[in-house]
């Protein structure tokens, strides 16, 4: 494939990954790694390096918007990001140690879970009274936001902080190890374990994703895994695609439309798992 065509092709693929990622709420990173490795034969490490850059690009834009609206809780985010950055540094350090097949297998499983988490019917109602957690009280892991849909101010406070913090470390390891944002895992920790409202979990996760990815990006850079001629078209493509996808979301917030993408996700996840097990589909 001529170089110009290659760059144009991965740019357009990244736009597509950004659109689908935004519509599904998965983020572009977890899709771009299997796409680059499966269809373009890009080495796993370069794909992960490009992905981690695209994750930071999309997170910066989204986080800025969420912070302005007050939906993203910066104190909760910074408190938990202590765990995710530590995990990301551990995960990124492991990339050179874990064989590529192992990375493919873990990525396939992470993609499967993320897709499952996205497609399960997420509860949009806010959590009721939660048990008082001394750590949440001590560190003021609480807040309030005006919910336009519910037409009231929702006041919330985190609970099970230790469990959430531990889960965040795991999400950070996955982010550093695979070059992904691992947003689905961060939302899971905040929503399910810490009982924060879904909107706050999603918005705060967006803020945390960029910081977590930034921690491992330095490791990827110094190891030579960030190839500018791959990372630039991928980052720009995912950024443009995510913006388009977010705009499209307002028109097509339909579960059936989301379901259309399910076979694509299933195919990518299965391909990665099989490759991780040493089985090539083609």
């Amino acid at each position: 494939m001529p170089p110009a065509v290659f760059v144009a092709a991965i740019f357009l693929t990244s736009v597509g990954a950004g659109v689908v990622g935004a519509i599904l709420g998965l983020g572009g990173g977890i899709l771009i790694v299997p796409l680059l490795t499966t269809f373009y034969g890009v080495h796993m490490h370069y794909a992960m390096g490009a992905s981690i850059i695209s994750v930071i690009a999309t997170s910066s834009g989204a986080a800025a918007a969420y912070l302005e609206t007050g939906l993203s809780n910066i104190r909760v985010g910074l408190f938990l990001v202590m765990a995710t950055t530590s995990g990301a540094l551990c995960g990124a350090a492991l990339v050179g140690v874990v064989p590529v097949r192992g990375l493919e297998l873990i990525l396939g499983l992470a993609l499967s879970y993320s897709a499952f988490a996205t497609f399960r019917q997420l509860a949009i109602e806010v959590p009721g009274d939660v048990p008082v957690d001394p750590l949440a009280y001590r560190f003021r892991l609480q807040g309030a936001y005006e919910d336009i849909r519910l037409r009231r101010v929702v006041v919330y406070r985190a609970t099970r902080v230790k469990a959430g913090f531990s889960a965040m470390f795991g999400a950070g390891v996955l982010s550093g190890l695979l070059g992904i944002g691992s947003g689905a895992f961060k939302v899971l920790a905040m929503d399910t374990l810490m009982r924060l409202p879904m909107k706050v979990s999603t918005a705060t996760s967006n803020f945390m994703i960029g910081i977590t990815a930034s921690a491992s990006a330095g490791v990827y850079f110094t190891r030579g895994d960030i190839h500018p001629l791959i990372a630039v078209p991928v980052a720009l493509g995912v950024l443009i695609g995510a913006s388009l996808g977010t705009a499209l979301m307002t028109r097509m917030r339909n579960r059936t439309v989301r379901m259309l993408f399910l076979p694509v996700i299933a195919y990518l996840a299965l391909t990665m798992i099989l490759r991780g097990l040493g089985i090539e589909l083609r």
């Binding site: 350090a93 050179g96 190891r223």
Partner: peptide
């Protein structure tokens, strides 16, 4: 932690 990722990990790999 972020500075650690940028500067100290230079020797990783």
């Amino acid at each position: 932690a972020l500075l650690l990722g940028f500067f100290v990990s230079g020797g990783a790999g």
